[in-house]
Amino acid sequence: MKENLKNRIKQLPGNDNPFTTPEGYFDRFSERLMDKVNEESVADTKPKVSILRILRPALIMAASFAAIFFIILIPVHTIAPKLASNNNIKTEMIDLVAYYFINENEIIEALEYEETIEEYNDAALEEYLMASITEFDLVDYKN
């Protein structure tokens, strides 16, 4: 295979370079390249400045919004918990006042009243049933 390749290559035209360049091309190339490098370096620094300039109004606006947000948020966070704790004090005060004006006898009376209502209700229900349902009604219900 190697011999075959060598024979094939021998059949090909010589490997002399058929291409040329303009006269003095390599003498001037480095100089032209350095000019381009300088241009690129300037171009590389320019966009950074312009991007900052473009973004500047947006950044100022964002900073303003952030400032406004914090101006509103800080008082809400500091004053709102105080208001909430004030409400708790108010309800506690109302309870204290209520206990102060109601004496023990009134509380016992109120409890007994609730129990009598319950007893009355059972008796009243029984009486009501005895009075309103006749024997005939019970027979009808059974059938």
Binding site: F19, T21, P22, Y25, F29, R32, L33, V37, E40
Partner: peptide, 26 residues
């Protein structure tokens, strides 16, 4: 140059590619 020239053939194209190559190196 000669390496690039055999790939892109034309001198002007080679010149562009060679400049871009060195700028990338820089």
């Amino acid at each position: 140059y000669w390496h690039v020239r055999k790939i892109v053939i034309s001198h002007d194209d080679t010149d562009d590619v060679l400049q871009n190559t060195f700028i990338k190196v820089w």
